[in-house]
């Protein structure tokens, strides 16, 4: 479902140094990254801040083109076939909404129906379903800017699933949520993956997400893959640590020292 082969992405930064003079610096956000995710998998994508998680997600969705390597998602090259891929993929950014700030939530859903050209009846059914499990009913008429973070993230998740995508990628969907909202989001994602077979890839700093949701964990650091395996494998890398927090802390700091 997701295939990366030697993918790299660098950014050239220009710093002005007086008139006409400048200094360029190249940041390698992702380098030589290769992995595969099969249909129906639930994968956690971990890494410290600045590791290149968001950059990877943006390349998977076609927002950014890779500077090297090859990507295929749901059978398509994201940067070349971005609009075709959009119908097969759903995206959630926990840090900012993809909804329309000033419009009531239900108008955002209406715009999405128009953008994806979802059949009216099908849309109505799917929306009713999502409203029920994500408990959106109470704030459908509120403008997005008035929603609480938990409500907004649930709205964003519903919006990403209205067109019934094959793959769902989420960039820190549980960031800043209270325990109740977190549990609601996790339950929903688990059911979605188990019952609809939707492939899910999520980035997170919350190890609870990993323990409760992901069968497979990938750890990225400084743009390259540092670990790829099951949660048990991850724990086995540091047998003398008892909690997964400590295991990951050790991995992060070991990477930093290298």
């Amino acid at each position: 479902m997701i295939e990366l082969d030697g993918v790299g992405r660098s950014f050239t930064l220009r710093r002005k140094k007086g008139w006409l003079r400048g200094e360029t610096r190249v940041v390698h956000a992702v380098r030589d990254l290769s992995f595969q995710v099969a249909a129906g998998e639930f994968v956690g994508y971990l890494g410290p801040n600045g590791a290149g998680k968001s950059t990877t997600i943006k390349m998977l969705t076609g927002i950014l083109a890779p500077t090297s390597g090859h990507i295929e998602v749901a059978g398509l090259d994201p940067s070349r076939r971005r609009t075709a891929l959009a119908r097969r993929i759903g995206v959630v950014f926990g840090q900012r909404t993809t909804l329309w700030w000033d419009l009531p939530l239900k108008d955002s859903f209406h715009l999405i129906r128009l953008l994806y050209k979802v059949d009216r009846e099908e849309h109505r059914k799917r929306l009713a379903e999502l409203c029920e499990v994500l408990e959106l009913g109470a704030f459908l008429d509120k403008p997005v800017r008035q929603l609480s973070l938990g409500q907004r993230v649930r709205g964003d998740i519903a919006a990403a699933l209205l067109h019934d995508p094959l793959v769902l990628v989420l960039d820190e969907p549980t960031i800043g949520l209270d325990v109740v909202s977190k549990a609601a989001v996790r339950d929903f994602l688990r059911t979605l993956n188990a019952e609809r077979g939707t492939t899910v890839l999520l980035t997170t700093h919350d190890l609870g997400d990993i323990e409760r949701l992901c069968r497979r964990v990938m750890l990225i650091d400084h743009g390259s893959l540092a670990f790829d395996g099951t949660v048990e494998d991850l724990k086995a890398t540091a047998p003398d640590e008892t909690s997964i927090e400590d295991v990951v802390t050790r991995l992060y700091t070991r990477q930093a020292r290298l």
């Binding site: 969705t61 927002i63 971005r82 609009t83 950014f93 993809t98 999405i112 953008l115 050209k117």
Partner: peptide, 17 residues
């Protein structure tokens, strides 16, 4: 504002959006 990223994940040209 990041809204351009949001437009790029939709199946309609960002120019139209």
């Amino acid at each position: 504002a990041g809204t351009f990223d949001s437009m790029l994940i939709r199946p309609v040209s960002p120019f139209i959006q």
